[in-house]
Computed example of a mutant assay.
Amino acid sequence: MSEKPIRVLIVDDHQLMIEGLKSLLEGEEDIAFVAGANSMAETMAFLEKNVIDVVLMDINMPDGSGIEATEKIRALYPSVKIIALTMHDDISVITKMIKAGASGYVLKRTNMNEVTEALRIVHRNGKYLSINTQNIIMENLGSTTEQTDPEEDARPSLSSREIEVLNLVAREYSNEQIAEKLFISERTVEAHRRNIFIKTKTKSIVGLMKYAIRKGLIEPENDDR
Rank of each mutant, 00 (worst) to 15 (best):
M1N: 12
M1I: 14
V8H: 08
D12Q: 04
D13M: 07
D13S: 12
H14A: 08
H14Y: 13
E19R: 05
L21A: 11
S23H: 00
L24S: 13
L24I: 13
E28W: 06
E28L: 05
D30Y: 04
I31V: 15
A32Y: 03
F33C: 07
A35L: 02
G36E: 02
S39V: 08
M40D: 11
M40W: 12
E42P: 03
E42N: 11
A45S: 05
L47M: 15
L47E: 05
E48Y: 00
K49A: 04
K49H: 02
K49G: 05
V51I: 11
D53E: 14
D53V: 09
V54Q: 07
V55Q: 06
M57D: 11
N60E: 14
P62V: 06
D63N: 02
G64V: 02
T70R: 08
T70D: 07
E71I: 02
K72L: 06
I73C: 01
A75K: 15
L76P: 10
L76A: 14
Y77C: 10
P78R: 07
P78K: 02
S79K: 15
V80S: 07
L85T: 08
L85I: 12
T86K: 07
T86L: 05
M87R: 13
H88F: 14
H88A: 03
D89Q: 02
D90P: 00
I94D: 14
I94H: 08
T95N: 14
K96F: 06
K96C: 01
K96P: 09
K96E: 10
M97D: 07
K99P: 06
A100I: 03
A102Y: 10
S103L: 02
T110K: 02
N111A: 13
N113H: 13
N113T: 15
E114S: 09
E117L: 09
E117H: 05
L119Q: 01
L119F: 00
R120S: 06
I121V: 11
N125Y: 12
K127V: 00
L129H: 06
I131N: 11
N132T: 03
T133W: 01
T133F: 12
Q134Y: 11
N135C: 08
N135A: 09
G142R: 14
S143D: 08
S143R: 13
T144M: 03
E146H: 11
Q147R: 11
P150Q: 01
P150L: 06
E151V: 15
E152S: 14
R155A: 10
R155S: 09
S157W: 08
S159H: 04
S160N: 11
S160Q: 12
R161A: 15
I163T: 10
N167C: 04
L168I: 10
A170D: 11
R171V: 07
S174K: 03
A179S: 04
A179V: 04
E180L: 15
E180H: 14
K181M: 12
F183N: 13
I184W: 03
S185R: 04
T188M: 08
E190F: 09
R194Y: 06
R194F: 02
N195V: 01
I196K: 01
I196D: 05
F197W: 06
I198L: 04
K199G: 01
K201V: 03
T202W: 00
T202R: 13
S204F: 10
M209S: 07
I213Q: 11
K215D: 10
G216P: 00
E219F: 15
P220A: 01
P220Y: 00
D224W: 13
